[in-house]
Design a protein around this nucleic acid. Structure first.
Lengths: 226, 226
DNA sequence: ACCTGAACACCGTTCAAGT
DNA sequence: ACCTGAACACCGTTCAAGT
């Protein structure tokens, strides 16, 4: 009989990284205290020595991710003075977005947190820094932050995407069937599907749509610049 | 001993309206099958005769609310041809928003639903109708829908609002304390608080900020109109 | 200091049974 | 047809106890 494995001791860090891993593999619903403990080779109750409760696990995830994003955007070395603010902001936001794309469940976690998290605040401090360098007043910065919303951190919560799958003939039939009751929606979808016949791409190019919306906002804000 | 009250029989409709009421009174977390049954004077298991499961309760809520919104926006009689599209869209969106303002927990429910709901599709069919009347191509409509996102239905999920409360001296002290680590954010907030000394209003005027962001998007889209 | 077992108060849901 | 009671498999969390 071999001695009991001297398992790595738990730490807050290990718990949080395991939590991200569990959600990456099984989605948010899979992230339970019991499952989390399993992955760490411990009992659920042991977690409570390192985090106060599950809410603190979520807060910790936000902290870890926001810190990762800060590390990335801190490395960006782009001028932001005057008209250059837009390119700097675009780069910052699209860099943050890369992290979110790796964790599809993250937007829900970020949106569920109300409390201020330092790493998140620091990210936004950088957003405001760029706006200020561009020449915006503090009041305009405030409006701009609201207008950008979660887009400032690189994500949007898609409300109803036709699904990530390819454009199937069955889906097209379904859309044709609603031509009577939803003529404008059906007309739009049929034409979009027709123009984009590369079925493997699917209905929407999420990245292109994100940048489209982002550019409208950045251009609109730029026009308000003193 | 009086006979057992011939209690109103349960219906899908009564269940859904009770669900909205429970969430209005106690928030989303209060909406459990057991609590919902309580409000209806029934047992939790009785609900399952009228809805398949809790997910269907959420879907039903979306349907009820979207139908209410459709009834309201259908009554709007505004020209939408050419440049008039913007005013018509603005009115439609702000009308939908009024319903969301009555149910602060609704955005979370809408964002959690992935399946297509007919009433929601019908609302969006109307959005596209207005865009088409304005002269946009179907491809532009598609981009516009993505750019507007949940704003098309009248809500945004605020990421980190400083809280709905008034601007307290304690909060200002807290912000001054972060002037070293978060200089741009602190600077912005201190100036915003100073410019808006009406403490009862609180930090942000949600309606004004919503309209600010909406107008940037509508103006930006209008500029793309053929 | 760190971890655990047993137990509690909740969930959503199934299923056989009542009227 | 409509509703219910008992029970199941899960939650997050508390608390006293182990090492």
């Amino acid at each position: 009989m071999k001695p009991t494995e001297p398992r790595l001791p738990l730490t807050r860090e290990r718990v949080l990284h395991a939590a991200i891993q569990v959600a990456d593999e099984g989605g948010l619903a899979a992230l339970t205290m019991r499952r989390l403990a399993d992955v760490l080779g411990a009992e659920a109750m042991s977690l409570y020595y390192h985090v106060a409760n599950k809410d603190e696990v979520f807060d910790g995830i936000v902290e870890v991710i926001a810190t990762e994003i800060n590390d990335l955007v801190d490395k960006i070395d782009l001028p932001a003075e005057g008209p250059a603010w837009k390119a700097a902001m675009r780069q910052r936001i699209l860099t943050a977005r890369e992290v979110f794309l790796r964790h599809p469940w993250l937007p829900k976690v970020f949106e569920s947190r109300t409390g201020a998290n330092f790493a998140v605040l620091r990210y936004n401090d950088g957003v405001i820094r760029i706006l200020r360098a561009g020449g915006f007043t503090n009041d305009q910065c405030h409006h701009a932050m609201h207008a950008l919303g979660s887009r400032a951190m690189g994500f949007v919560q898609e409300l109803f995407t036709p699904g990530p799958g390819p454009v199937t003939p069955e889906a097209l039939d379904g859309i044709r069937a609603m031509s009577d009751t939803l003529p404008h929606l059906a007309g739009m979808l049929l034409e979009v599907a027709h123009d984009e016949p590369d079925a493997t791409v699917g209905w929407c190019d999420d990245q292109a749509e994100f940048e489209f919306g982002l550019d409208i906002l950045l251009d609109g804000l730029d026009r308000l610049r003193p």
